[in-house]
Design a protein around this nucleic acid. Structure first.
Lengths: 217, 217
DNA sequence: GTCTATATGGCGATAGAC
DNA sequence: GTCTATCGCCATATAGAC
């Protein structure tokens, strides 16, 4: 999907972005920052952030490179805005009362379900976050916030294990890593709008993670 | 970890590469292609392939940019060599008799274990493969071989489900995706040489994937 | 097998007109 | 809000000496 002739000046942002998200804007380019961001994140995910030049981005927007700089001061600022959206969504999981009290088993299940939900709602933004390598200060700060999220889940796993609801024959760090692997990998294949709803996906993840793939007797 | 002063001319490849892998070379730079490749792959994984310039790579090798071109004709050839190593390892899984006959349940478990083993043995190479975006023909060809591997595992999942050993309340495509998510994510955290051996890791993956995290009664 | 010097092009970003 | 033209830099890769 290289070097599109772009939807040359006129169709790109009218209601539906390249990204597929309805933005509610009236026709013609005349972008706003959020729409530029949505398209940018989609293109970043398709080619990788580093491999996406402002020129490629401009083609996908159907405007010139320099016009992008009217909406956002730099490529790195686009990244920063996107990461804020991803991290804000993930961090909001902990604000719910269900995440704060009750049996660790139930808090953990709630957090898993909520994480899957945020992941599907903010799919392109979280995808971008999960692929960072930490090459700039912006990226490293985002990764640190992500690690902080992971640490909280790890604590919950520890609590559930002490409760006796999680198996003890596997190192809790391994458990935590495999759990995140399963959840985070969703961004690599899940696409909203298909027959698999976010709710069913969350059910499936909870089932597989806690009960496994084998049939029960 | 930016712009290392490099291990300036003399320590870098003497027995142990930046990569940590013993290569069996006698001191001083004087690299061979495999050693350049090992270091390159490690640096590609640290910064991302696209974000890694030949300059950064040269610093990590402790030689000049142009010296790299003595060993390999281009940056993309380095990628290509690395991907061949990853894909060759993965594809070899299907050569074993245990992958070809017997109950689907057992073939599937064998393939999961073998994949985890290849993943740990060729960790940096498989890591690079799993992060590709398909930006060049080289990358797209590798991704196609990877998809072919995935398709074979999906077939095995279908067979195990028909046997009645895998649960039927989840779409087989979802099962396949979650299984790969769990396995593939290992490259993001597993490091050989710690207390978690590849064998125990494979046991843990098989346990979690097939029996789940919950305690059994 | 390595070096310095260099060719050539694309990058992110800016200036200033419309 | 967009454009054309351009700046300065760094990218991959080459030439040719040691």
């Amino acid at each position: 999907m290289p070097t599109l002739p772009a939807t040359t000046n006129g169709t790109s942002s009218s209601g539906t972005t390249t990204n597929g998200a309805t933005t509610g804007r009236r026709g013609r380019p005349g972008y706003d920052q959020q729409t530029v961001l949505n398209v940018a994140v989609e293109v970043f995910n398709r080619h990788g952030y580093d491999a996406t030049s402002m020129g490629i981005l401009a083609e996908n927007l159907g405007i010139s490179k320099s016009a992008i700089y009217h909406h956002v001061p730099s490529k790195e600022d686009l990244l920063s805005l996107a990461l804020e959206e991803a991290l804000g969504g993930l961090e909001s999981v902990w604000a719910s009362p269900e995440a704060q009290s009750g049996a660790a088993e139930h808090r953990l299940e709630f957090v898993v379900r909520s994480t899957v939900r945020v992941l599907t709602e903010k799919l392109p933004f979280v995808t971008l976050l999960l692929r960072l390598r930490g090459n700039t200060e912006t990226e490293r700060a985002a990764l640190e916030r992500r690690r902080s999220f992971d640490r909280k889940v790890a604590e919950l796993i520890g609590a559930a294990r002490e409760e006796g609801t999680l198996r003890k024959d596997i190192d809790p760090r391994t458990v935590s890593r495999l759990l995140f692997g399963t959840i985070n990998s969703i961004v690599e294949w899940y696409r909203p709008g298909g027959s698999l709803t976010p709710e069913k996906l969350a059910d499936d993840v909870v089932t597989v993670v806690f009960d496994g793939l084998h049939t029960r007797s």
